[in-house]
C-alpha cells in the first residue's frame, strides 16, 4: 500500500536548513494497522504530512497504492487525498458551523455527489458510529469521543485505502481513547490500512506494528508478535 525509499526532507527557514527526514525506508502492506512513535522533533509529523500528500519531499520515492506521489499539482493532490486518504486529527477539526451530518458528507461534496445522496450516505456512516440521533447537532454540542467518531465517519465516507490519524486520542480521556481505538480496529478489520501517530504506549500497543522514529530515521520497527511479547515483558517487569 505504502512504499517509501530513501525519503529526505529539509525545511529551509532563512539561512538555516533543518534536515528533518534523513532517509526513510518503509513499506506498509494493505490492511496493516501501524503506529508511528517518536519524541517531538523526531520527524513523525513531517512524515505524516508527506504520507498525506499535504507536503512534498526533497529526495527519494513515495508510492501510494501503486501511484508515484512526486511533485504534482494541488488539484491532483487534492483528488488523491479525497479518494485514497482519510484523515483523523487530534483536535477533531470538524467545521464548527456545520452539523455532524454535513461534516461527514463534506468529502462527497468535493466529489460532486448530490446533496440528497451524500446526506443519505453520511447518515449511514453516522449510524455505523452509533451517532444517528446526533446527526443534526453542531460539533460544540458533542462530547470529545463523539466528535472523534464523527471525524472517523468523515474519514471513511470517501472509502479511502488509508486512514492517517494524527494523535487521534491525544485530546481524549483513557476510556474514550480505548473506545476510539476499538472503532479504528473495526475499521482496520474491514481491510483499510491505518496509520496512527501517537506518543502513548498503550495506544501504540493496540496496533499491529510500531515504528519508532528518532532524529529523522527509523530507529525501531516492531511487528505484531513482538508487540505482544513486549507487553508481556513490560507486564512481568511491572510485577
Amino acid at each position: 500500500m505504502i512504499h517509501i525509499k530513501g525519503l529526505h526532507k529539509s525545511y529551509i527557514t532563512g539561512n538555516n536548513s533543518l534536515h528533518v527526514l534523513k532517509g526513510i525506508d518503509l513499506t506498509i502492506a494493505p490492511g496493516e494497522f501501524v503506529s508511528i512513535m517518536g519524541s517531538s522533533g523526531s520527524g513523525k509529523s513531517t512524515l505524516l504530512n508527506i504520507l498525506g500528500i499535504l507536503d512534498n519531499y526533497d529526495n527519494g520515492d513515495y508510492r501510494l497504492d501503486g501511484n508515484l506521489i512526486a511533485k504534482m499539482s494541488e488539484k491532483k493532490a487534492a483528488a488523491f487525498r479525497n479518494q485514497l486518504i482519510g484523515f483523523v486529527f487530534q483536535s477533531f477539526n470538524l467545521i464548527s458551523f456545520k452539523n455532524a451530518l454535513e461534516n461527514v458528507a463534506l468529502p462527497l461534496y468535493y466529489q460532486q455527489v448530490s446533496r440528497r445522496k451524500r446526506n443519505l450516505i453520511a447518515m449511514e456512516y453516522l449510524d455505523r458510529m452509533g451517532l444517528a440521533e446526533w446527526a443534526h447537532h453542531m460539533p460544540n454540542e458533542l462530547s470529545g469521543g463523539q466528535k472523534q467518531r464523527v471525524a472517523i465517519a468523515r474519514a471513511l465516507i470517501s472509502k479511502p485505502k488509508v486512514i492517517l490519524a494524527d494523535e487521534p486520542t491525544g485530546a481524549l480521556d483513557t476510556q474514550t481513547s480505548y473506545e476510539v481505538m476499538d472503532i479504528l480496529k473495526e475499521v482496520n478489520e474491514q481491510g483499510i490500512t491505518i496509520l496512527i501517530v501517537t506518543h502513548e504506549h498503550d495506544i501504540a500497543a493496540m496496533t499491529n506494528r510500531i515504528i519508532r522514529l528518532r532524529d529523522g530515521v527509523i530507529a525501531e520497527d516492531i511487528r505484531n508478535g513482538e508487540v505482544k511479547k513486549m507487553k508481556e515483558l513490560a507486564f512481568a517487569a511491572a510485577n
Binding site: 499535504l54 488539484k75 487534492a78 479525497n82 484523515f87 470538524l94 467545521i95 463534506l106 468529502p107 468523515r154
Partner: peptide, 16 residues
Amino acid sequence: TKEIGIQRAIGARPWT
C-alpha cells in the same frame, strides 16, 4: 484558515 485546512485535507481543490 483552519476551515480551509480541513477542507483541503478532505480533498477540496484550492481553486474550489
